[in-house]
Design a protein around this nucleic acid. Structure first.
Lengths: 147, 147
DNA sequence: GGAGCTGTAATTTCAAACGTTACAGGAGGA
DNA sequence: TCCTCCTGTAACGTTTGAAATTACAGCTCC
């Protein structure tokens, strides 16, 4: 059970944009350096965030900015933008249960109940964290190190 | 974000044991046929469930039985037995953020907050589903098909 | 003592995630 | 206008981890 790394990289980028996006032009190259990911990976993420209306990208000369206040951006939105449909099939199911066994025939239907509940709970959890919380936590962490 | 298939296979096995474990000797070979998995995979799962005190295994001649009532077996217990430590690192974090960037230095600390919350919520969700619920759902599904 | 099962280590196979290369298209400055 | 730098996206290569497989020692009951 491992959520994709993409979500963490996306949060990293949005935090970066919040802190520096107003004062400098933030390109995919800069975000690639900060996150340690490939620029193309970043561009794909940013592209997905743009489609979700979370950031706006300047054509030509480049540069990305947040286009919503951090209170209005939840982890769930980020996650859904970056990897839609990932909350479906949160838990993998063995693909070839025997059709000759009554349990094999029904296992998918049966598991759908607890797994559906889990999906709802995960969603609620991700919806309860916003980028504003992340920003606050970041500034707090920085302050403690005296940076 | 994809929880391991093992959990689903384990639930399948326990459901099988609950329905048939009293009336016949259930070996890893039978469970392998029903689940469509390799017998060795099943033996490893059963071995883990045994260590957690959920099932008991007859040495020598073989055969597995539940050793707790289904109301007392939660999905969380199953999951933890079969894949301990999987709720840690539920969401992957990019491994090489730049140490030269203040955000890169703090991103792990910052993400620990929402991800820790998610972990707690997932755990609660899995704790709220028991094998008894699964059994009820199974019998219900069977009834509807007139099987 | 033999048949059939469990327990476990070692190796192989395979698919999905991720990184990388490549290039077309657009915007702004020289 | 041309040149440079960026974005957007497709195609390909690489890597990592899950699962299957093979192999064999140990136990029990008939």
């Amino acid at each position: 059970m491992r959520i994709n790394t993409k979500c963490s990289v996306a949060v990293h980028c949005l935090l970066f944009l919040h802190e520096y996006g107003e004062t400098q032009r933030v390109t995919s190259g800069i975000l690639a350096l900060s996150t340690g990911c490939n620029p193309v990976v970043i561009r794909n993420l940013i592209s997905a965030l743009k489609k979700a209306g979370i950031v706006e990208v300047a054509g030509g000369k480049g540069g990305t900015r947040l286009c919503r206040s951090p209170e209005e951006i939840t982890l769930y939105q980020i996650y859904k933008a970056v990897d839609p449909g990932c909350l479906d099939d949160l838990v993998g199911i063995h693909p070839l249960p025997s059709a000759l066994c009554p349990i094999g025939r029904n296992i998918r239907t049966v598991l759908a109940v607890p797994y559906g509940k889990l999906q709802v709970d995960v969603r609620k959890s991700l919806e309860s964290s916003t980028l504003a919380d992340i920003v606050a936590e970041y500034r707090n962490a920085q302050g403690q190190k005296g940076q």
